[in-house]
Amino acid sequence: MDLSFYKSFMSEEIRDEGRAEGLAEGLLLILKVRGVPTTDEFHEKITNCTDPQLLRQWLNRAATATTADEVFTEG
């Protein structure tokens, strides 16, 4: 059985998309549960992001943020 597809660039891209979608959903859930209000602009920024590393960074900030701005502002 040829398993080369699972090691291919395309396969990795598909996995990254899935990771990004899951991280975006988690980020939005954390913000909602914590009562941090978000605008449509923030919601769109989160759901359109395809970078799992950046989404993880935002997710870490969301754990302690009191505003959505704190999630996206470095510092």
Rank of each mutant, 00 (worst) to 15 (best):
K7H: 07
L55S: 05
G22H: 07
L27T: 04
P52Q: 01
D16Y: 00
L55E: 10
R34E: 07
H43G: 01
E70P: 06
L29Q: 13
L29A: 13
A62C: 15
Q57A: 09
E25R: 15
T38Q: 05
V36W: 02
P37A: 05
S4R: 07
A68K: 01
R61W: 03
N60H: 13
T73E: 15
K45N: 04
I46N: 12
T67I: 04
N48L: 10
R34Y: 03
G22M: 05
T67C: 08
I14S: 06
A65P: 03
A65Q: 04
V33E: 15
T67V: 06
G22K: 10
T47C: 02
G35H: 10
D2M: 10
I14E: 12
V36I: 09
T64Y: 14
I30K: 13
G26C: 08
N48F: 08
T73N: 15
H43V: 04
T50E: 15
K45F: 06
G18N: 09
D2A: 12
K32F: 14
E13G: 10
T64I: 14
F72M: 01
G75H: 09
G22C: 02
T66W: 10
T47N: 03
R34M: 01
V33G: 13
K45D: 07
E70C: 08
L28P: 01
G26M: 12
A20V: 02
G75I: 05
G18E: 12
H43C: 01
N60I: 02
V33R: 15
I14L: 09
F72K: 00
A20C: 00
G22V: 08
N60F: 05
G26Q: 14
D69N: 13
S4I: 04
A63Q: 13
